[in-house]
Write a protein that binds this DNA or RNA. Sequence first.
DNA 1: TTAAATGCAAATCTTTTGCACTGGC
DNA 2: GCCAGTGCAAAAGATTTGCATTTAA
Lengths: 138, 138
Amino acid sequence: MATDPAERATDWLSTAGLRPTRQRLALAELLVGDGQHRHVTAESLFDAAKTDGASVSLATVYNTLRAFCEAGLLREVTVDGARSYFDTNTTDHPHFFWEAEGRLSDAPSEELELKRVPDAPEGAEIASVSVVIKLRKT
Amino acid sequence: MATDPAERATDWLSTAGLRPTRQRLALAELLVGDGQHRHVTAESLFDAAKTDGASVSLATVYNTLRAFCEAGLLREVTVDGARSYFDTNTTDHPHFFWEAEGRLSDAPSEELELKRVPDAPEGAEIASVSVVIKLRKT
DNA sequence: TTAAATGCAAATCTTTTGCACTGGC
DNA sequence: GCCAGTGCAAAAGATTTGCATTTAA
């Protein structure tokens, strides 16, 4: 298990068989460099890259996020209709969505229990189960 | 309880205190006229209205759906990032989403049990819990 | 060398908005 | 008559796409 951010990024890409280009490595490092899970939007990742001094176009951020998703490295989380969020934790788990700030965070999954999930109808299988808990400031 | 579609639509609007304009009545009748729950997008409702011979602009469909939502007559369901769906069933309940067709339908809620839901963090309350089960053809 | 990836700008798609007009109350 | 509701077209966001250029293998 790599501990160096750059190495983590490289490993992450190679497990999915994605070519480690400069842009992908920069984005991958921002996503998984410290080994922690993240929730990003295309825009937020683009800003982070700019702040980091990386040279990546917004279109490439979109295309790269989509490529990471298709490779199974990221999970797309849809929550407010306008923006898409991408989660580095690709397992099914619940999310909190802070309506006021438009921020997504993990909800403690131990505290949620789906006792039983409806069976998929004939001719279909369950691709994923998404649970989003919308929060409002009190 | 009204059994006539037009009457149902009128009642539905009046419970929310919304003025029964011609356009709203036409859309309301398409939504709740037969007493069954529906899942629509702005586009699909607009098409249905046109087919029905009703004269409503797309902008008005959007504005009206939003107004119905704010009045508590509809529940917005976000599922695929691109489009918003509106459900005439405003109670918290799970949905099936057919990825291939982009269609939303109710999942049998008796078969889903949230044993325990994570507590809302300090300073926040739970506004809603959304459960979407994505289906893929086998 | 060569197919894949990138950058940019333009295109697309969904949704909202500004403003003049219409119609419930 | 007043003010909410409507229609249209234009604007606003988010995301994708076309195409020429660059780059990893």
